[in-house]
Design a protein around this nucleic acid. Sequence first.
DNA 1: TGCGCAAGCTGGTATATACCATATAGTGTG
DNA 2: CACACTATATGGTATATACCAGCTTGCGCA
Lengths: 260, 260
Amino acid sequence: MDAAILEHSLKGGDGHQVPIDLPRFQQVVQYFKSQIANGSLTEHAPLPSERRIAEDYDISRMTARRALDALEAEGFVYSEDRRGRFVTPKRVSYDVSNMVSFVAEANSRGLALEIEVVRAMKSQADAILVEKLGLEPGAEVYAYTRLFRNNGHAIFVETEYVNAQRCPGFLEHDLHQSTTRLLEARYDLSASTGDIAILMRAATAEETSLLSLARNSAGIELTQIIRDASGRAFCFGRQFWRGEAARFSARAIVERSVND
Amino acid sequence: MDAAILEHSLKGGDGHQVPIDLPRFQQVVQYFKSQIANGSLTEHAPLPSERRIAEDYDISRMTARRALDALEAEGFVYSEDRRGRFVTPKRVSYDVSNMVSFVAEANSRGLALEIEVVRAMKSQADAILVEKLGLEPGAEVYAYTRLFRNNGHAIFVETEYVNAQRCPGFLEHDLHQSTTRLLEARYDLSASTGDIAILMRAATAEETSLLSLARNSAGIELTQIIRDASGRAFCFGRQFWRGEAARFSARAIVERSVND
DNA sequence: TGCGCAAGCTGGTATATACCATATAGTGTG
DNA sequence: CACACTATATGGTATATACCAGCTTGCGCA
């Protein structure tokens, strides 16, 4: 494709009208957005290289780069270092009100969810865990970090902490499965309530590399405290999601006072 | 401050150790992150200009820009066109399980929440509203868009749609207040359950300008369907938040089956 | 005193260029 | 056939430079 064809496309040749006074890099952004929207570029399809785009559209490589960086920041494409840029796949849905295992539920919906255990260790509760899990300072916890992929594409990384006293020998089990199930089957700990928090933040260095994110990119952190019927917390989890990878849903129910 | 002082700071002069093999723009990123973290730069404090940073740290302006763009993408600073860059204020908390008005609740917690009505009109339900509000195609709805500021800093923009038939004359009321309250007081419509969805996405053009976001930046969309006790939806809302402006929390409760 | 204009500052866009490190594919050799 | 090397392409970092548009400030004039 050459610049003339881009002009053609941008001016509405394929039915997509674009304001003509946009900066050039924004025109390229719009062009690829429309290509993704109309299905010309599908999930994981490679985009042209920076140099190719610069040449084709008669802009400098840095300008092409600005366009691609913008597409990446908005979540439309992801990049792999020295390999290329690719179209971001569709989001997965995560119902946080549903306290049964996300893993099991996702797989039953046809998702091909793979788990990679990054790290697993026993350690001592720090200040945060003391608060979240209601432990005494220095109490032992099992901590394990797992990377979750959907169809081979990394979507989030999770670190969970479980009370070691209540779950002896926890790490000896296979962690390539739903830990909610594990806790229920082996330790008779079943989730009754959960406190969930969601926020957008920058990825840490480890998250950046595990999720092959661009440097300095943001994503979604979801933390979860799981309690048993007596209200005691037995598991604390922190997930960091690629921002464009998920849609979180929840159900709220107004609590009626006892006088109702 | 000159380059030598930056080097000094980066190498641990102020107690902050930074890997020496980082790219130069990342060193600047780290430097400002630490300045924000240790309180040397507080909420809304101005950062040096691109040119000033370039000169002080002996890097080109484009490299300084890369650093500032990174800080902005990560949510640590926000920029105002041709005015400067400033430190992002602290997040506000939003409990989505709490179905009473966010506005009223936030103000009672000491937040100075201001509302600006951007648009208010009567229109006809499109396909999305037909589904979300359970209306017949072409049914009338009131639609209004409001911008919310905290201490003068824009944090999110919301568009709500209410069933016009159930809420006659809705737009004649003052929209600078909690609409949850309004619906309850004037139309006897009180929230019983809500379906909430949260996802990270790119800002639209209007959101970008209302929230004075950088071009192509991402934020958080929160949609909410509010239902009465009979399960009928009477209000659909869509909020778009600055990504770094909020922390959303929710409470999940496992639903026991009737056999329990 | 108050208004208006100009200068200087800011961020935003854009180009051209250079070099680096590595992923990938193609080539050649044992 | 298997392995090692090499050429090429890719994204990542960095510089120097130029111009634009609009916000702020301060100066000078009425």
